[in-house]
Design a protein around this nucleic acid. Structure first.
Lengths: 107, 107
DNA sequence: AGTTTATATGAATAATTATTCACATGAATT
DNA sequence: AATTCATGTGAATAATTATTCATATAAACT
């Protein structure tokens, strides 16, 4: 890990360590969506979606484009795809019981 | 992203979204270390190191082996290397100003 | 210009997470 | 078996982060 990356990682991981933001990203990985569409899909208030999209945008984990009064957000797949893949791989290899492993110590 | 991965990701990212844990991982990426060695290197209390290693171990982000009274921890490089690489790549491409980008909206 | 629609933001509160301190456990040494 | 060394853990407090609500901004429509 290069010098300074710890700070970058911290902001990055903090950004992703939130269920609402992860759920939003999960949707955005499938297709670009507006704030209102995300709010509706996730069943949450618009202001909460806006609040949560902000830090993702600041870190360029998502991008924005404005179509009239609608703000369309897109996921940064270049960054997110390899990270989600790595975690998926980790889950398969190191969490075979799907969460139960969290309570056990490795043999 | 597969179903259920959101939850895994959440625990995973929560685990990594902490400066102490990241600093510990940064050390462990270079070589295996005991709790005491980590505490000394990071300039923090032993109990804090223990508290922070626990969730990393539970998610198998690190592994433990016991040598007498010393507990030696090792980083799960298979998982961590690709993730850190992806973030390093992200930082280079999307945070060219090294953190200042966090305050700006993309052009 | 006024109204509606879509999104963002500030400030207060609620919830979560981190940190510290005191102490428990357990292996090695005398 | 008592002591020392290394680590883990519980509980209290401190700090951070999330959520909500009220309101601001800004584009489109009448």
């Amino acid at each position: 890990m290069k010098k300074g990356l710890t700070e970058t990682c911290y902001r990055f991981f903090t950004n992703l360590s939130n269920p609402t933001r992860l759920a939003a990203l999960e949707q955005l990985m499938t297709k670009p969506l507006s704030v209102g569409e995300l709010a509706k899909t996730l069943g949450q208030e618009q202001s909460m979606i806006s609040h949560n999209l902000k830090p993702l945008l600041e870190c360029n984990i998502i991008a924005i484009r404005k179509e009239g009064k609608r703000h369309i957000y897109t996921a940064n797949k270049e960054t997110l795809t390899p990270i989600f893949s790595a975690i998926e791989n980790h889950a398969q290899k190191f969490c075979p019981t799907g969460g139960t492993c969290l309570k056990e110590e490795k043999p």
